[in-house]
Design a protein around this nucleic acid. Structure first.
Length: 563
RNA sequence: CGGGGUGUAGCGCAGUUGGUAGCGCAUCUGCUUUGGGAGCAGAGGGUCGCACGUUCGAAUCGUGUCACUCCGACCA
């Protein structure tokens, strides 16, 4: 490809609304264009890279025995109604109507259509197991699209679904995908971690996420260097501390006018935040629930929500809080609630004695409160976030925290969808059984962005060879000089003839401009034809390392071929 | 969903007390230049997000609306 003919416009200035390196660089390199919030076009350079990522994914899925097909992006409402997800997805689902008023949506994920397809095709255990996949656009009307292609409303996902006779089969299929994922992310050159994850809205018995460690990651990762434990913050298990052996003291009511936050209370009562227990009221699918964690801890809404199989949860409204506690917001506590509600107590709180809570009376707190004596817990469970330095649930060593970008997620779904959609097969005995499913996703665009996050410098992108848009770029420094340009053209032709993806920057621009562009779009090898063109000597520069070397044109061709 | 910010040329931005719009980069032409985003001279390009209002007159003031964006959505 000739750069002079290429549909590409690089930009010198950083677009104002791009926050993270991958987003800025993709815009500057002219790889993508925003069409609306969270909706992007891929321009030629960007699309080349995108297709390469897609192909790595495709090759490894095929190698693992999965079969590719494609489902529609536009799906009728009924497809999601049997599983209950038409309602459950809520406002995240893009919905539309056809001219006859029938309801459709843009598919946010495809468990249902895949399950239907298998249900309608497979009758016998002899046809199982099977793993199907597609690389298809997904649509989710995200609350907050962010970071360019990282979190989009329209995005491309490779989603695979496995169907097995039983749990043991699922374990096998899952393992096969697990291995395929490792090959994919390794081939893409990513530094990633596999963490235990919450199965969330997908349901099911277990799942793991493939996380690319990155400052800009939206997920918190907890990991242990000592034993290798790694989990998403949402899922990371907290260990119950030792029981406080102190004697129970008599409850005291303390006047605390206008003291509503833990911080104010600390100052007022001259105590550490760990002496308090905060009682937070949630509205979980219309039901008000109290959750209690130590004053300096954070409630893990995922863990709490899972107790109730929640679809929607939020903090209770002020009105609800006042009605239930009989006090203004800020004085909620487990003692003296005006209505009978569930009180979920964090494991850690259960080990505490004589703590301070809101009194359910405006301007008062209670001191020396104890579980069992002063109030009853509905459940004592782990509902807080793990924090750096907490004990590892596996080996007890201090836990470390990092941020990560979730590029892949694998789930053991079990029979959630197969049961709902009646996806059954006949076993050896001619008996009907429900298929056991797994599902496996990779965000193609997000993975691409994650690669850039890990491979860039102040000059631009440094593509790993596997997914570089072109392997090499030939840069003649003087396009009007016959000798110079002639040699450049020869190298270009040699490489092209050998099937190497190569660019020639034949623009009548100053060398500096060409170098800047080559660096920005991140071509792995640059072959500069310059001063020593008459001797047949060129300069080879490696984008990844910055190394340069002078060599003959033929040697340079060989370098690019051998890449 | 809550709060903030911003909408002026392809990109980044300026525009004073209201008087029909400017800078840098990019683009086009010419000459010079040619190893890290060149110089000079010239040129083209804007319903000032949209609507309504105030006014003799609105990019500027008011109201509404849309879009984009950031923070928060851990507060008891």
């Amino acid at each position: 490809m000739r750069v002079s003919k290429m549909f590409m416009a690089t930009q010198r200035e950083i677009p104002a609304d791009a926050e993270i390196p991958s987003h800025q660089l993709m815009l500057r390199a002219g790889m993508i264009r925003k069409v609306a919030s969270g909706i992007y076009s891929f321009m030629p350079i960007g699309y080349r890279v995108y297709r390469k990522v897609e192909n790595v994914v495709r090759e490894e899925m095929d190698r693992a025995g999965a079969q590719e097909l494609i489902m529609p992006a536009v799906l009728p409402a009924e497809v999601y109604m049997a599983s209950g997800r038409w309602e459950r997805f809520g406002p995240e689902m893009f919905r539309l109507k056809d001219r006859g008023g029938r309801q459709f949506c843009l598919g946010p994920t495809h468990e249902e259509p895949f399950t239907e397809a298998v249900r309608d095709t497979i009758r016998s255990y002899k046809q199982l197991p099977v793993t199907l996949y597609q690389i298809q656009h997904k649509y989710r009307d995200e609350k907050r699209p962010r970071f360019g292609i990282m979190r989009c409303r329209e995005f491309v996902m490779k989603d695979a679904y496995s169907f097995d006779c039983d749990e043991a089969g699922l374990d096998e299929s899952y393992k096969t995908m697990y291995e395929a994922y490792n090959r994919i992310f390794t081939r893409l050159g990513l530094d990633y971690t596999i963490v235990d994850a919450d199965s969330g809205a997908m349901g099911g018995s277990g799942s793991q996420e493939f996380m690319v460690k990155s400052e800009v990651g939206e997920d918190g990762i907890c990991y242990c260097d000592a034993c290798g434990y790694a989990a998403n913050e949402e899922k990371a298990v907290c260990v119950a501390p030792d029981q406080d052996a102190a004697e129970m003291l008599p409850v005291e009511k303390i006047h605390t006018p206008d003291v509503k936050t833990i911080e104010e209370l600390m100052g007022y009562m001259n105590c550490e935040p760990s002496a308090f227990v905060k009682t937070i009221l949630y509205n979980i699918d219309g039901r008000i629930v109290a959750a209690m964690v130590r004053g300096d801890r954070d409630i893990n809404e995922t863990k709490l929500g899972n107790l109730y199989d929640a679809t929607e949860m939020d903090l209770a409204s002020f009105a609800d809080v006042e009605e239930i506690t009989g006090a203004k917001v800020g004085f909620a506590g487990p003692v003296g609630l005006k209505k009978q509600i569930d009180v979920i107590v964090d494991l850690e709180v259960a080990s505490m004695k004589n703590f301070i809570v809101g009194a359910c009376e405006t301007d008062y707190h209670l001191k020396n409160v104890n579980i069992g004596r002063d109030f009853e817990a509905t459940q004592i469970v782990d509902i807080r976030n793990l924090i750096e330095g907490d004990r590892c649930p596996k080996c007890g060593s201090p836990i470390k925290m990092a941020r990560g970008v979730e590029v892949g997620h694998i789930f053991k779904l079990g029979t959630k969808y197969s049961k709902a959609l009646n996806c059954i097969y006949l076993d050896k005995d001619g008996k009907e059984n429900t298929m056991v499913m797994g599902c496996y996703g990779i965000g193609v665009g997000r993975t691409l962005a994650a690669v850039i996050e890990q491979y860039n410098d102040e000059d631009g992108i440094k593509w790993p060879t596997e997914i570089a848009p072109y392997k090499a770029i030939v840069v003649p420094t003087k396009v009007n000089d016959e000798e110079n340009m002639g040699l450049a053209e020869k190298i270009y032709k040699d490489l092209a003839d050998k099937g190497i993806e190569v660019l020639i920057d034949d623009r009548n621009e100053r060398p500096g401009v060409k170098f800047k562009d080559a660096d920005l779009i991140g071509i792995p090898v640059r072959i500069t034809v310059g001063r020593r063109a008459s001797e047949g000597i060129v300069e080879v520069k490696y984008r990844m390392t910055g190394e340069t070397a002078e060599m003959t044109a033929d040697e340079a061709v060989k370098v690019a071929v051998d890449l």
